[in-house]
């Protein structure tokens, strides 16, 4: 599903964010990528959605060679991946319904399908009653649930969650992790980028630890404490 082959990413002028990273993530896996600030976690996440291109090596996502993608093909790749961000990245002038529907609109889904699916997904994340509200009228936890709904509504093969619990309290964090685990049960590959010890330990799945831009460890049922 995802293969990084000797990937190096250097930012101008000579900051090495990732150095000779090689890894493979199979379909249906739940992988936590952890590491301290500056370890290269976010760079790795950006490479997966073609927000950055590798300086050396090859990044392959669902058969797409990220380094060789044309500008025209980037949206096609991103439609295969659901992305959850720490800072939500909701469209502020669109309602909850419209934000979720937007992910379907960009792939050309019919209005009937949108009217059918979006309320279902909002029901799953418990926001059916707040479909008409705007992001500024929601709490942090609710906004993050909208992001999850948007990331899942088009049934992506891969779900990339970059620090999804960074702005949430313990209760909301638990809800988000439960939701990710549930999604993974349906076969979606989950990549969780985090530095939250409790989250990683609660998930208890594969853990890849990055340190100074390199893979420090790769454990199949790792824990944060062990990994570091």
């Amino acid at each position: 599903m995802i293969v990084l082959d000797h990937v190096t990413k250097v930012y101008h002028p000579n900051h090495v964010a990732l150095q000779d990273v090689s890894l493979a993530i199979g379909a249906g896996e739940f992988v936590s990528i952890i590491g301290q600030s500056g370890a290269g976690k976010t760079t790795l996440a950006k490479l997966l959605i073609a927000d950055e291109r590798p300086t050396q090596g090859k990044v392959s996502v669902g058969g797409w060679d990220v380094g060789a993608l044309s500008v025209h093909d980037v949206p096609l790749l991103r439609r295969q991946i659901g992305v959850i961000f720490q800072d939500y990245k909701l469209l502020p002038k669109k309602s909850v319904f419209e934000n979720v529907a937007f992910a379907l609109e960009v792939i050309g889904a019919s209005r009937a399908r949108i009217r059918d699916i979006v309320p279902q997904v909002l029901r799953v994340v418990g926001l059916e009653e707040k479909a008409g509200r705007f992001p500024t009228q929601l709490s942090g936890g609710e906004q993050q649930r909208v992001v999850i709904a948007r990331a899942l509504v088009h049934q992506p093969k891969i779900l990339l969650a970059d620090e999804p619990t960074g702005n949430l309290d313990t209760l909301n964090t638990r809800d988000i992790i439960d939701a990710l685990l549930k999604v993974n049960q349906f076969g979606t590959t989950i990549i969780l980028v985090t530095h939250n010890r409790e989250v990683v330990n609660a998930v208890h799945r594969r853990v890849i630890t990055l340190k100074n831009g390199q893979i420090h460890s790769d454990q199949h049922q790792g824990k944060y404490a062990l990994a570091m």
Partner: peptide, 16 residues
Amino acid sequence: REEIGIMRLVGASSAF
């Protein structure tokens, strides 16, 4: 500009 970035991240084409 942020909205434009978000739209792109969600997979919207340049024309869209």
